[in-house]
Structure formats: C-alpha cells, structure tokens
Design a protein around this nucleic acid. Structure first.
Lengths: 205, 205
DNA sequence: CTTTTGATAATTTTGTTAAAAAAGTCAGGA
DNA sequence: TCCTGACTTTTTTAACAAAATTATCAAAAG
C-alpha cells in the first residue's frame, strides 16, 4: 500500500516537474497536455488519471513552487541578527522568485481579474506565511530593544510588503517595459534597500 | 485675429469637454466620433477640423485633466507648514483624481503595453511635476530643521511615490476586485497615512 | 485492483468571410 | 475660415466551418 502511494507520488512529482518546465518556458496557454505527456513519454490520458484537469495541474505546480519559496524563507529568516538583514533577505528571495518564474505567471496576467479561487487561496497562504515570518522578525527586533514597540506587527509588515511591491511595479511600468531588464534589477534593488533603510529608521527610537 | 483664435479655443474647449464626458462614462473604445459630434450638435467632420484623429483628441483631453490635477497640487502644496500635511494632501488629491477618472483610463488598461509615446510623455510630465513639487516640500522641511538633510530629494520622493502606488495596487489586487470599493478607499487611505508617518519618522533626526 | 492507453467525444481556439459600424477624407457651401 | 453631407477606408462584429485542444471512457496491461 505504502509502496503504491510512493510510486504514485513519484509519478505525480515527475508530472509536476515536466509541467513546470513547460509552463515556465511557454506559459499556460501555449503548453498543451499533449506536450507535457510527450515530454514524459506517457499518454495524455494518464495525466488526467493523476490530475482532474489542466488548471488543477497548473495550480498543483504553483502550490509546489510556492512551497519551495516559503521553505527557503523559513529556513533562513531567523538566522539574521537584525531586522534590516532579514528584510533584505526577504526582498532578494522574493525578487529572485518572481524573476525566475516570470513566464510561469502569465496565467495571472492572462486571466487578470477572474482567477480561480484556489489560486487566490495559495496567494493568500504565501502572503500570510510571509507576514508571519517577517512579523516575528519585527517582534524579535522589538525585544532586542532597537526599535520602538509596534502596535500591530502584521499590519506593519503588510504595509511594507505593499510598498515594496510598488517599487517593483513602478520601476517596471514607468519604463514601459513589461519585464525588468538586468539594468532595472539593480535599480529596483537599490530602491528597495533605500526604502527598507528609511522604513526601519522610522521604527527606531 | 485674436477674436478668431478665441473662438477656435472656445470651440476646442467645448469639444474637449464633451469628449471628456463620453470617455469618462463609456471609455475610449465605446465612444464614437459621431456621438461626440452629436452631443455638440456638430458634424463629425468638424471634429477632424479641430483634431487630427480620435487618439489625438483623447490625448488632448488627458493633457487637460492632467493639467487641472497639477494646478490643484501646485496651488495648495506650499500652503502646508509641515511635510506630512503636504504629503497627505498629495495623496488625497491623487487618489481622488484616479477614482474620479477611473473609466477614462480604460484606454490604458486596454492598450496595456503599447501606448502611444505622447501618452507616456504626459505621464512623464505629470510625474516630474509631482516630483518637483514634493521635492521642494522636502527641501523646505529640511531647511526648517525638522528632518535630516537629504542627499537626493528627487530620488527620495520618487521612492515614496512608488511605495504609495504599491499601497493602492496591493490593496486592490489582493481583494481580487478591479476597482476599489468604498470600504477599501478607507483602508487604502489609512495605510497610506501610516506609511507616510513611518517614512517621515525615518527622515527625522 | 491499479495503472495505462488508443479511440473518441466535447469544448475551445483559430481562420474565413461578409455585413455593419466606425474612422477618416474631401469637394464644395456659407 | 468654419462647416457639412456624402464618400472612402479601416476596423469591428457575427456567423460559421475547420483545426486544435481539452477531457472522457471502455478496455488492455501489469
């Protein structure tokens, strides 16, 4: 019984991996179930044995990479001895994640307003995980006594995340390019660091 | 000669006003030149006498409302005796502007990536005007001695504007609604105030 | 009983074309 | 110079067939 499930799980993993590569390189709408099946040398019907439909497959992949992302964050965020480094780490990891998976998220841009609820669930989960991690970092810093006590750490971190998102969006949209070029990456990064700097100073005594 | 130009200007103004109403209520693509002409009881051909084509007409309207927006800002931004109030004022005016003209900007959402250069010019002009106004406010505040000297006020204000933009976007996109509802307006406003508050504290001694 | 597939059904996308709507032009009138 | 009706050109829409893709299923394989 356990062996069977192991086998199933391995196969599911392989499907997820192949799907991820396709989605990443060609986007959601330009990858077909046939192609994914072909990559794995299996029949398309088998994909439907493991996943109910294409969007569910996509969502499963998304759940996986979101999990990986959070794992990196969770495993390292507590290693920093000051809040700023923790924030900077989060910025870097998040930014790398977005850049690396940019094409994967074309599904988002494509369906813009009416994404399936499951997607929003994942987004929400990631967000609250980030929130909780960074929120803890803030609390830790407060207990170190380097910044003033914070009424509502969650609200504060939420605010910061939104603001950082603005830096990304602003830098990209004003240059009227849909995707940040290498040169912008530096600019964005610099700006984010600057914001973090001011923000944290704003929290100090 | 002057009278003739006056007359022309008045007519152009009327056309701009009628066009604005149409664009505002029905968006760019669902407004026809015939309708605008009809509203003004003039022939469509006359519109083409005053404006080279539809997109130029749209751009002229945009230039006008952008000018009005900047005028409000310019005329009031110096009346405040502290930086925070100035920033808050900018937030409010900008937010009202976006909300009021939301439908007008469907042209942006529609053409997403490839907007005519002229549009970007206007956007750029508005942005640098805002930048310069707020930048001055920062300098004034520095000279008052309540905040630390700032290396590059423009860069700083640019950063803040991006961050504020993030608050707008974040609050809207995460609620998976394309347009802020009344309840969100308050939330966004509160968040912006909070950000401003921390940001300014971050600038203080 | 679980896993797999080929064949096939159902749905969505794409391409085509004709009609309708809208943009844009122009000769000429006031 | 300002304006118009009639006209041409371009764009959008609708309808529909063809093609591509998603999804199903009975039955084979292990």
């Amino acid at each position: 019984m356990a062996a069977v499930n192991d086998h199933q799980d391995i196969k599911r993993e392989k499907i997820l991996e192949a799907s991820y590569q396709r989605f990443l390189h060609y986007g959601y709408s330009k990858t077909t179930m046939n192609e994914i099946a072909g990559d794995l040398s299996m029949s398309k019907a088998l994909l439907y044995y493991y996943f109910p439909d294409k969007s569910q497959l996509y969502i499963a992949v998304m759940r996986k990479i979101a999990g990986d992302y959070l794992t990196v964050l969770e495993e390292n965020i507590n290693a920093f001895t000051n809040l700023k480094d923790a924030f900077v780490f989060q910025i870097n990891v998040h930014h790398d994640f977005i850049v690396k998976n940019y094409n994967f998220f074309d599904f988002f841009r494509l369906n813009e307003q009416n994404l399936p609820d499951t997607i929003w669930e994942i987004v929400g989960q990631v967000h609250s995980a980030e929130l909780s991690l960074l929120s803890n970092a803030v609390k830790t810093e407060v207990s170190r006594g380097t910044i003033k006590p914070v009424d509502n750490p969650d609200e504060l971190v939420d605010l910061l995340l939104d603001a950082l998102h603005g830096i990304r969006v602003g830098a990209v949209s004003q240059k009227k390019t849909s995707f940040p070029r290498k040169e912008h990456l530096e600019e964005i990064h610099t700006k984010k660091l600057l914001l973090i700097d001011i923000f944290i100073k704003g929290l100090m005594y």
